[in-house]
Write a protein that binds this DNA or RNA. Structure first.
Lengths: 225, 225
DNA sequence: TTTACTATGTGTTTGGAGGACGCAAAGGCT
DNA sequence: AGCCTTTGCGTCCTCCAAACACATAGTAAA
């Protein structure tokens, strides 16, 4: 391969992260306000350029922490966006990642020199996004719905201990449909993914719900519905 | 972004295609024999560098036709491989694609100046592959199995008209398990994905099977099993 | 303390889909 | 005409999931 060939020259690799959480009965995603040209002040997905000495996966973790302060969260490659015009500066391919966090980490947001601001947005009320980031978010939402149905990744969106109604809420909010409490409970318990902790909720106005935890906090392909 | 920064300089974007077909009761994939350094003479996946003025998806189509002569086949992005050491020459990220063809196109293989040879291999008897291409094939097989279960992509692996035993064969070969003829038939017909053509097989030694076709030759998410 | 209210936890019924399997039909071959 | 092979069709039976009624555990108000 001729590395000086202008057909290939000056290509760049980028990562962009779509971070989702479920909070306040909404799916929310994390956006940062861009601090440099082009598109200064516009909202974009957190992300950045991949260094030559790191893997793309690692770059995703690093950039996410640098731009938002979030670390140690579930991260999975989503899709690579390769339209030649997607970045006005140069030929830039973006590897998009889907990240999931439970809402207790929502408050850990850190402004950096590279971004003007970072904020959670209801995905139904997104502002205009620069580049092709709106398209990336759309695909991420699709993927999130599939993952919820075909795996146990709900564990990433809930605290260590949670109630069955909370779990059901996550499913209802993301999939946008209601389920029967009793059938949902039976189905999920039969799947064997979660177990009772023996403890119960405290300080509730009504009957306290039992607390459960996921047996394994690791991705597992399972048909939920 | 500083385009001269050595952290980002000299990055390259590549596409690699895993082409599958089902033939002779085996899953086969197409490999080409490399014509240049490094790894001259070794078997690799068909692929090549992405040009600056084309989308990554388009590059996949173009490279596949250039390297093998195959065109107009089902092509889907699989995963992006971004280990910094995966190519000894430079920082090269590879976007891997999964391609599917029906066996009638197996014979259309074209040697080019860029490759010494092109050949179909039983995936259970692959030679050593250069780069990280073995890993790519492994992931592609996994993905193929999932796709077969959760969508109608079987249509890409069969001719326009096919028999139910042929269809069942595709499933059995790829998934590696036997199904009951009568249950498979009932399930697939109930799915409504295929319809009878009214014609039958000809020149068979036994009872000729009815010919079917897929109603829509377009990807559709459906739970098959 | 008694009652009302609300959300959680448990049981029952019922219908449909899928797995196991028997048998008939349509060819070619001897 | 019989035999063999493969395809096509129907039945039984079990299990799972949707639909629904009722009991339980807490707070809040009378």
């Amino acid at each position: 391969m001729d590395m000086k060939n202008p057909k290939y020259k000056n290509q760049g690799i980028h990562v962009d992260m779509v971070v989702f959480t479920v909070d306040d009965k909404k799916i929310k995603t994390l956006l940062v306000q861009r601090g440099r040209k082009p598109f200064v002040g516009e909202w974009i997905l957190p992300g950045g350029a991949v260094y030559n000495d790191e893997s793309v996966d690692f770059a995703a973790e690093r950039e996410l922490e640098e731009k938002t302060g979030l670390k140690d969260l579930y991260l999975e490659q989503l899709h690579t966006f390769g339209n030649p015009k997607r970045d006005p500066r140069k030929r830039m391919v973006s590897v998009a990642y889907l990240a999931l966090v439970d809402k207790k980490k929502v408050s850990i947001l850190q402004k950096t020199s590279k971004t003007l601001d970072a904020k959670w947005f209801d995905i139904k009320k997104l502002p205009d996004l620069a580049f092709d980031h709106k398209e990336i978010v759309r695909l991420a939402v699709k993927s999130l719905r599939k993952m919820l149905i075909y795996s146990n990744i709900a564990y990433t969106l809930l605290p260590c201990q949670f109630t069955l109604p909370e779990l059901q809420g996550v499913y209802e909010i993301i999939l946008g449909e209601k389920f029967d409490r009793r059938n949902f409970r039976r189905k999920f318990l039969n799947l064997g993914l979660i177990e009772a902790t023996g403890k119960r909720e405290e300080g509730m106005a009504n009957r306290p719900a039992n607390l459960y935890r996921f047996k394994a906090k690791k991705y597992k392909a399972v048909d939920i519905l």
